[in-house]
Design a binder for these strands. Structure first.
Length: 311
RNA sequence: CGCGGGGUAGAGCAGUUGGCAGCUCGCCAGGCCCAUAACCUGGAGGUCGUCGGUUCGAAUCCGACCCCCGCAA
């Protein structure tokens, strides 16, 4: 049987399992991989290839790294592909490119559409305290994350879930259901289901400043927020002009409301912070320029920390 | 040469007009106690990141290098 010709489009670690799944599936032939150009990264700003490029190189696949994907529309057209598969490319695919493959473009989305559309779909369910999230395989259309759905898989969010752990779980879950969903679609066996736009929310791209903790929020909300911001951008606050990351707090809030929000105090010899409602016990934190450490270690070295107000 | 913080006891930190190396915790021993992660007493544990320079004398001043971290991506 003739293999389905596809081009894979993706960039970060999240897309790696999906590309691997397609490469190892004999029903498909990955004829090329499109990813972002190498970007300066790390403290020396060394030019670093995206994870997808490294994987593609290991398999000897043809690689394109255009600044804008539409710049290689001609090359894509010449490859005469059945479908383009997009997983976390970090760039909007313009209509001109979407129109090129015979059967269009299929996307692996890291949440259950239509609830969360946009960039920070891993963080949103954790922040909101959702019980379930998942992945969606969908056919792309001209607007972001609005195309008809092929398949979905659910995942129950744990009480210690972080955006990082979700990324690991969902990238594998997506890779697991992608091949069958894609093949079924290309064979005409799966009919794309239109999304209900009334249930949709758009969540924008996360920035460093989005990790700033609002101590007016309730302890419950902040605890979820901290997990959602892990490991980037991290939930953080200000202390004497320096950034202080709150890496981990006890998930059990304590019902103390006698302090000013953001104020630190000791509770059973543990570092606690007053929130808008109730208080949190801090487990691990990191001052800028320093390594992550437990709150016990931190307090030992920074004597006047207790009693100060964060934020 | 992207910007910035830092490397001092097992851990977290203090320590610059250069002059015997400190604090909190941990650890070991002993004591108190019905008992204890509490308390008391005593103790071990450091080539102050590395190399070189200045000096009678350097954790501290100068130079080079190594390593860690934040920002940025």
């Amino acid at each position: 049987m003739k293999k389905q010709r596809i081009i894979f489009v993706g960039t970060p670690k999240f897309s790696v399992p999906s590309l691997k799944a397609l490469i190892e599936d004999s029903r498909f032939e990955v004829v090329a991989v499109i990813t972002q150009p190498d970007m300066p990264a790390g403290r020396s700003l060394t030019l670093t290839p995206p994870p997808i490029k490294i994987l593609a190189q290991n398999y000897g696949l043809q690689i394109f790294q255009p600044p804008k994907i539409s710049q290689i529309n001609d090359q894509i057209r010449e490859l005469e592909i059945d479908a383009l598969v997009v997983v976390a490319y970090a760039q909007i695919i313009p209509e001109s490119t979407l129109a090129l493959p015979k059967f269009g473009c299929v996307n692996v989305h890291g949440s259950l559409l239509p609830k969360y559309r946009g960039a920070s779909v891993l963080q949103a369910p954790i922040i909101n305290g959702d019980e379930v999230t998942g992945v969606t395989i969908m056919v792309m259309d001209k607007t972001l994350d609005t195309g008809p759905i092929l398949r979905q898989a659910e995942y129950t969010i744990t009480t210690t879930e972080t955006a990082d752990s979700l990324a690991g779980v969902l990238s594998n879950l997506g890779a697991k259901i992608l091949p069958d969903a894609l093949f079924g679609y290309l064979q005409g066996n799966i009919k794309p289901q239109t999304q209900d736009n009334n249930l949709a929310n758009y969540v924008g791209r996360m920035e460093k400043k989005d990790g700033i903790i609002d101590w007016q929020s309730s302890a419950t909300e902040i605890e979820r927020f901290i997990r959602a911001m892990t490991s980037w951008p991290s939930a953080w606050t200000w202390i004497k002009g320096k950034q202080l990351k709150i890496l981990e707090v006890d998930k059990t809030v304590i019902e103390i409301n006698s302090q000013k929000p953001g104020k630190t105090f000791l509770y059973n010899s543990c570092l606690a912070v007053q929130c808008g409602t109730d208080s949190l016990l801090v487990r691990r934190l990191q001052l800028e320029g320093k390594k992550p450490m437990t709150s016990e270690e931190f307090i030992r070295g920074y004597k006047d920390f207790i009693g100060s107000v964060l934020g």
